[in-house]
Nucleic acid binder design. Structure first.
Length: 610
RNA sequence: GCGCUCGUAGCUCAGUUGGAUAGAGUGUCGGCCUCCGAAGCCGAAGGUCACAGGUUCGAAUCCUGUCGAGCGCGCCA
């Protein structure tokens, strides 16, 4: 249990042994090890005093000590169980402390306050972490997937290919990608996927929009009805269509349908005419132009943003391969559907939903919901043991019905985890920016990236919990770009890189072996708290991955950068004494590596110069 | 009307799943470069954790109610 860190005397001989990485991976973080020690002591105490074994059901929680004076970790176990054990909290704490094994990496275990148990790690424990950072490099923070690790599918963005991505999608993209990176780092086998809604009515509206712009391009006088897509990109798609097809797709424009009483019904009539006039083959050309133009645009946009997917899953595949019919059939066979008013309904209320949901419309067309059921059934059948969906907050109302469908089909919803990303409210100065996609006024992700840069955008997006509303002032992000929090972290990284340059210029160089051997020379409070910050990294990674909360990592990086800046201002690192200098460089270079890795997990770069 | 997410410093927000004296950034004010990058550091000021009850050794955190904000409640996607 306590064999990982070699005792002092061996290190003094300069035989600092490499840490057994496999052993470390298996045992988890120092925090978990402390929890194990306390759990053992707890068990022993219950046994020794003949206490009720039920007590052991209490989970042993270890938390990061808030105040450095309290040590590294703290536990409230004694206070939690005191009443049931019939002991005073302080008495219980004393009894537990007596029974805690004290390996060499643990300096002290003490009682404090009303009954806290405080743990302090030894210096060697912290030095070993610096050595591990050095040894693992870019892989520090990553765990190898265990044998038989679970396969996980994470689906995000999945915006309809009817226009460019806007800033709301950007948050989902930054969050989903950071989460995927975090989960991979912590040993999950993760596939990422974008679900392309290319089979619904919206796509036919897009096709009609493109065709009308195309007719305009051919010189015809067209009245462009409201409710269609009127962004510039529609004209671009039409232009390409014109270049490819010339006037081959010219037909008489749909007319005489403009003065109905219902906008949407009018559009339906126009879409019908468009399809009829063009015929299936030509209509498909127009339709595909709208789809591929937008899909290419989205793919390129995301790629530039540093977000890529393992798979783009098309809704039309579900239709083509019969998954959709099969999903509905399976629900029917299991007795979950009924006919009413010519439509097929899913009896969602039997599982607690507000109302039943239509699967197949009166006209036989499947609903969006039916596709979703088929898609999730498909995910299930692909052998994933867990699926994470990241949806926009406006999809909130769909959670219950999709979960219910999975409950009906698979008998469980445990494998399905749905996370909602709240919209970022955009401001220009003090004016709220409209997010309407209808007028083409909305702010695209691309605009945002050009204004504030990829790094700032990604960091801002994941700086807050995804389920929180967030105000994002474009003017502020632009005008204050120099005070952007991400620069603060990047600056710390660049400062350390600059030290390496200075070293070269002075002809000193960096002896990392000697530095690591000499770490015990570092006794300043700023040095010790930097080491403590480094130790927290893997714990924060776990916290962020387990809670699907990359913002913990963002906050941590800011704190680490702050500790570095404080140290840097307070202490000269490049001193003439070689041992001290190398020790300080070893410490600071470990900070550099952790900043680099941490930013990388958030999809943010760490430049060497700024 | 019902459901979900919330309400913490002037502003934008953390708060390690119920712990020790509620913290950052920004803004305001005052200090620090003959010294490794001042995109930095140090200090001051700023709070009825929306409000009222409750649960217990202990509440910003959990429960109930009130007020307020956002989102969702379609044979749209």
């Amino acid at each position: 249990m306590c064999a990982r860190f070699k005792p002092n005397d061996e290190r003094r001989k300069g035989q600092f042994p490499p840490i057994n990485r496999d052993e470390f991976v298996k045992e988890g973080s120092l925090k978990n090890q402390v929890a194990n020690l306390l759990a053992e002591a707890f068990k022993q105490w219950v046994l020794d005093e003949g206490l009720d074994a039920q007590l052991l059901n209490h989970k042993v929680m270890i938390e990061q000590a808030r105040d450095e004076r309290h040590g590294d970790y703290a536990s409230n176990l004694a206070m939690v169980v005191a009443v049931k054990a019939g002991r005073s909290p302080r008495f219980a704490a004393e009894a537990l402390i007596e029974r805690v094994a004290k390996p060499s990496w643990l300096e002290s275990v003490k009682i404090a306050g009303p009954g806290f148990i405080n743990f302090r790690l030894s210096d060697q424990a912290h030095h070993a972490i610096i050595q591990r950072v050095r040894a693992k490099g870019n892989q520090f923070g990553c765990l190898e997937p265990e044998k038989g690790a679970k396969k996980l599918l994470i689906e995000f963005v999945s915006a309809n290919p009817t226009g460019p991505l806007h800033v709301g999608h950007g948050r989902g993209a930054a969050y989903g990608d950071a989460l995927a990176r975090l989960l991979r780092a912590r040993g999950w086998l993760v596939d990422s996927e974008y679900y392309v809604n290319d089979a619904g009515r919206q796509m036919h509206k897009l096709a009609l929009s493109v065709w009308l712009r195309y007719l305009e391009r051919c010189g015809m006088d067209i009245e462009f009805p409201s409710g269609l897509y009127r962004g510039d990109y529609v004209r671009c798609a039409a232009e390409i269509l014109y270049m490819q097809q010339g006037e081959n797709l010219m037909r008489s424009p749909p007319s005489g349908v403009m003065d109905g009483e219902n906008d949407e019904a009018r559009l339906d009539v126009m879409m019908g005419i468009c399809r009829e006039e063009l015929g299936e083959t030509d209509y498909q050309r127009v339709f595909d132009m709208g789809l591929t133009y937008n899909l290419n645009d989205i793919r390129e946009d995301l790629l530039s943003f540093g977000v890529s997917f393992d798979r783009w899953f098309h809704e039309s595949e579900l239709v083509r391969h019969g998954d959709l019919e099969r999903a509905v059939d399976r629900l029917s066979e299991a007795g979950w559907t009924y006919e009413k008013g010519g439509a097929t309904w899913f009896a969602s209320t039997r599982l607690g939903d507000d109302k039943d949901r239509v699967l197949l419309r009166e006209n036989g067309q499947p609903t969006y919901f039916a596709s979703d059921v088929a898609y999730h059934l498909n995910k299930c059948e692909r052998g994933y043991s867990a699926c994470i969906n990241i949806w926009g907050a406006d999809h909130h109302g769909y959670i219950a019905r999709v979960r219910n469908a999975m409950q009906a089909l698979a008998g469980s919803t445990d494998f399905l985890e749905i996370l909602l990303v709240q919209f970022a409210n955009l401001y220009r100065g003090s004016a709220r920016v409209s997010m309407s996609t209808r007028d083409g006024e909305f702010v695209t992700l691309r605009t945002l990236r050009e204004e504030v840069g990829n790094d700032a955008a990604r960091f801002f997006y994941v700086m807050r919990p995804c389920d929180q509303h967030m105000d994002f002032d474009l003017e502020l992000a632009k005008s204050q770009s120099q005070e952007n929090p991400v620069y603060y972290i990047q600056y710390a990284h660049a400062r350390i890189c600059s030290l390496h340059v200075q070293l070269e210029q002075k002809g000193w160089g960096f002896e990392s072996e000697e530095g690591i051997r000499s770490l015990s020379l570092l006794r300043e409070s700023h040095e010790l708290s930097l080491m403590r910050q480094l130790r927290r990294f893997e714990e924060v990674m776990d916290l962020a991955a387990q809670n699907r909360a990359p913002h913990h990592l963002a906050n941590y990086l800011r704190e680490l950068a702050s500790a570095l800046h404080t140290y840097y201002n307070h202490t000269i690192i490049l001193v003439p004494e070689t041992e001290v200098r190398n020790a300080r460089m070893a410490l600071v270079d470990a900070v550099r590596q952790v900043l680099y890795n941490g930013l990388a997990f958030l999809g943010v770069s760490a430049p060497r110069f700024m």
